[in-house]
């Protein structure tokens, strides 16, 4: 089965729609959303609604730190994120808030484990930024293959039995075989706010039969998404960064 794995949608409807269409066109049979459905972007309600519909159709949907912060008055974030958070809170209806608050932090299916950030303490929202973080993550989960987001830059880590953890920066859509004798951690790029210098929306397709993973990018209407952020009165930097993917 072909799983489409999405993370960090961040209220970017245009990017989310483009990724859903690209994943469906590629034959995705099931969706996994690794959290941060809202925050930063101008369409949090729409993105949450759409995700809820995916969940009703059998998608795995997890809670990210921004989804968590909507219902958590004690959260501290940087000033831009805080402004976006306060704006986002005002946009969301009570149903959506309840949906976000009830999302699980992690999920396991077969030999795959899903979580928004580092698996050792999911609720601490630690970033997996290098091979040492990845080693900590892999130590904390039993599944052979694990997927997380949160970083907004795609990466793939691999651990040999008893060996070192190696880092790989995906450079193309070539399917990567996740060799069965090794353990793997795939960090998804962001759907709604890529930060690796490529403005295209990021997602991945994982073929559970062949154990092959493809890191994909899809172009979307950045102009419209950025325009809505400006119109909404959100910080302008949140619009500008979408054009450069930073």
């Amino acid at each position: 089965m072909l799983l489409a794995i999405l993370s960090d949608i961040h209220g970017n409807r245009e990017a989310f729609e483009a990724v859903l269409a690209a994943a469906r066109a590629a034959g995705a049979a099931r969706f996994v959303v690794l959290g941060d459905i809202v925050g930063y972007g101008a369409d949090p309600e729409w993105c949450a609604e759409r995700t809820r519909a995916l969940a009703q159709d059998g998608a795995i949907v997890l809670r990210g730190n921004h989804d968590d912060a909507v219902g958590n008055p004690n959260v501290t974030m940087n000033s831009t994120a805080t402004m976006a958070l306060e704006w986002t809170r005002r946009q969301l209806g009570s149903d959506t808030r309840a949906f976000l608050a009830a999302l699980p932090l992690k999920a396991r299916e077969g030999d795959c484990f899903f979580v928004h950030a580092d698996a050792s303490v999911p609720s601490d929202w630690n970033y997996v930024l290098d091979a040492s973080d990845a080693g900590q993550h892999l130590d904390a989960c039993e599944a052979r293959i694990s997927f997380c987001g949160h970083v907004h830059k795609p990466a793939l880590y691999c651990a040999a039995p008893g060996g070192k953890v190696t880092h790989f920066c995906p450079v193309a859509a070539t399917p990567v075989p996740l060799l069965p004798q090794r353990r793997w951690l795939a960090v998804m790029g962001a759907v709604g706010q890529p930060r690796d210098g490529n403005p295209c929306a990021a997602f991945a397709l994982y073929d559970t039969d062949s154990a092959e993973l493809r890191f994909l990018r899809t172009a979307y209407d950045v102009e419209t998404a950025a325009g809505k952020i400006r119109t909404a009165g959100l910080p302008l930097s949140l619009a500008d960064r979408l054009f450069e993917g930073r």
């Binding site: 091979a131 040999a160 880092h167 450079v171 070539t174």
Partner: peptide, 12 residues
């Protein structure tokens, strides 16, 4: 080395 695939030799 396949430049689109992780290099298991590297760093090891």
């Amino acid at each position: 080395r396949h430049i689109h695939l992780p290099d298991l030799m590297d760093e090891q």
